[in-house]
Amino acid sequence: MKYESCIIGLKNVTKDFSIANRKKNTNLKENHEDLAVSDVNLNIYKGEIFVLIGSSGSGKSTLLRMINNLVIPTEGEVLIEGRNTQKMSHNEMLTIRQKKISMVFQSISLLPHRTVISNIEFGLEVQGVKKSLRIKKAKESLRLVGLNGYEYHYPHQLSGGMQQRVGLARAIANDTDIILMDEAFSALDPIIKRDLQNQLLDLQSKLSKTIVFITHDIDEALKIGDRIGVMSQGKVIQVGKPEEILLEPINEYVKKLTNDINLQKLISASFFHSLTSEAKEKLIKKYNTQIEKLLETVK
């Protein structure tokens, strides 16, 4: 079995913003719905890419932020390698964020007053790593994302795709076991998005981190996810391998989500190749009948 050890464990995790809202505390993440996440149980295993998919407002961003305690759960436990983050001291939490979990954001996450290289160094600088080592590591991870030569550019001089790569490089430079990616590719145009997805898969094959990836794009989820969790209205309604999500949708919502996938992208996704020929046939058959139905209505 590929996944032998659970690195992130969520037990009955709930986030109720109504309490914070009543106090009029400006929380890090604004949320319109009071109950953002309710009673989520989830295990994420070492070395996998776990994709959380759901429409906006489904609580996926909040859930992700509870993993590194940027959002503090109202109830439940978050276990990082078996240790409950809710029982950690502030300093222990800082250490976890510095050395265990790094994060890639959707947009405007680069520090505008710093060059690319010093943006990548940031995490190490916070940890107090020596300057020479910092630069060495930063250059290494810049090379990994294919941006060598841009060390001394400022973020505003880069395109959106390049900025996201720098964000990724910054997370890689920290060399943490866990990388959280919050809709990291959502704001990019399709071609650059595809390139970055491929690059991420490529990097993952070299580095084998544990990646929790958030998206609202089912094609993206199928392409990069080892396992997928579907979220709706603050609940994780189904967790499974891509083919399980496609072939055995648990309810109407998941069915609807998987209905309009891009067949071409599905066939080119890596999980598809590792399926048994039986499962492949099943999948193709499912979508073939759909296409036939569609053609009939057109006629």
């Binding site: 400006t26 890090l28 993440k29 590194n68 940027l70 939490m93 800082l94 250490t95 976890i96 964020r97 510095q98 050395k99 979990i101 790094s102 994060m103 954001f105 947009s107 405007i108 996450s109 520090l111 940031f122 995490g123 600088e125 916070v126 940890q127 920290n174 959280l180």
Partner: peptide
């Protein structure tokens, strides 16, 4: 300072004075 950038700072485990002086 945009709250997104502050969040980035927090996500890297910055201490209060680091957040203040570096961001």
């Amino acid at each position: 300072v945009p709250k997104e950038i502050i969040e980035v700072g927090h996500s890297f485990g910055t201490k209060t004075h680091q957040l203040l002086f570096k961001i």
